[in-house]
């Protein structure tokens, strides 16, 4: 039967390029629109209030030339990733225990609710009191506490929702425990963890900058922002914001996405599955 062969556009380089373009152009238009609006806004307001994209870029270049950007970016990255690492370790461990045992799950549920209920800003105050303003432990701790519930929730649901029909199927083949783990539980868990890692890192960056700023730290993007505020350097503030946004997207698109493609090759083109299936059903 001919259903095996899919539409031709998928195979050829030209078709692939067209498809990539179709996927990318709306985003490009949105981005251009954003910068256009920003530029128009800058032209019609005082530069003290809204510096133009060009002025922001200039400030960015000046800060980079001063050698402040690299050090600050590195410090913020360390705070974010350090806190995230702690959260992943603790959230993974507790999540695993709670996912496997309903009793542990019920025991931890109120604790997680309490931790989640405390505002980020309150954790920053506590961290300041405990670790002091100049210690890297202050932003790291704040990030860890902020990200922990996200990772915990993902691990718990990843483990406790392992697909029953697949496990039942595996049971009919007398599948050994080790194979169940590597072929069913782990791939399933990874598919739950990835969105949580992305969301957790997103929270992490923001909390790290906030903690640096509130603590009056001497290093990090948050420290740069605090300095820009004190000196009323609005263009510098915009430059620091641009730095943190670029770092976030850099991590997501240069690290997380390739990592996911490597760990989960089966997801490639998943969104197109419906259409390709429809094509296959037609011929």
């Amino acid at each position: 039967m001919g259903g095996i062969r899919h539409g031709t556009a998928h195979g050829t380089g030209q078709g692939a390029a067209r498809r990539t373009w179709q996927k990318l152009w709306p985003g490009a238009v949105g981005l251009l629109g954003f910068f256009a609006l920003w530029q128009v806004g800058a032209l019609t307001t005082d530069p003290i209030i809204l510096p133009s994209p060009g002025a922001t870029a200039k400030a960015l270049v000046r800060l980079a030339a001063d050698g402040r950007v690299a050090g600050a970016a590195l410090a913020t990255a360390l705070h974010t990733l350090g806190g995230f690492g702690l959260a992943a370790a603790a959230g993974g461990l507790f999540g695993l225990a709670a996912g496997l045992s309903a009793t542990v799950r019920r025991m931890l549920a109120p604790v997680v609710t309490i931790v989640q209920g405390v505002p980020q800003i309150a954790w920053i105050v506590l961290a300041l009191l405990w670790f002091g303003p100049s210690s890297a432990a202050t932003p790291i701790f704040t990030v860890a506490v902020g990200v922990l519930p996200v990772i915990f929730a993902a691990v718990v649901s990843g483990i406790s929702t392992a697909e029953r029909p697949l496990i039942e199927m595996a049971r009919t083949y007398q599948t050994p425990k080790a194979l169940l783990l590597t072929d069913i539980y782990l791939p399933h868990l990874i598919s739950y963890l990835f969105p949580a890692v992305t969301a957790g890192l997103g929270i992490g960056w923001k909390v790290a900058v906030m903690a640096e700023l509130m603590a009056g730290a001497d290093r990090g993007v948050g420290a740069g922002l605090a300095r820009a505020r004190t000196n009323l350097e609005v263009a510098d503030a915009f430059a620091w914001i641009a730095i943190i946004v670029v770092m976030m997207f850099g991590l997501e698109y240069l690290v997380l996405h390739p990592l996911r493609r490597w760990l989960e090759p089966w997801r490639a083109g998943e969104g197109e599955g419906g259409r390709r299936r429809a094509e296959a059903d037609r011929d």
Binding site: G3, W266, E270, G273, R276, A280, D281
Partner: peptide
């Protein structure tokens, strides 16, 4: 992968 196949396949 399964999502690339039709229901019959």
């Amino acid at each position: 992968y399964p999502h690339q196949l039709s229901g019959g396949m």
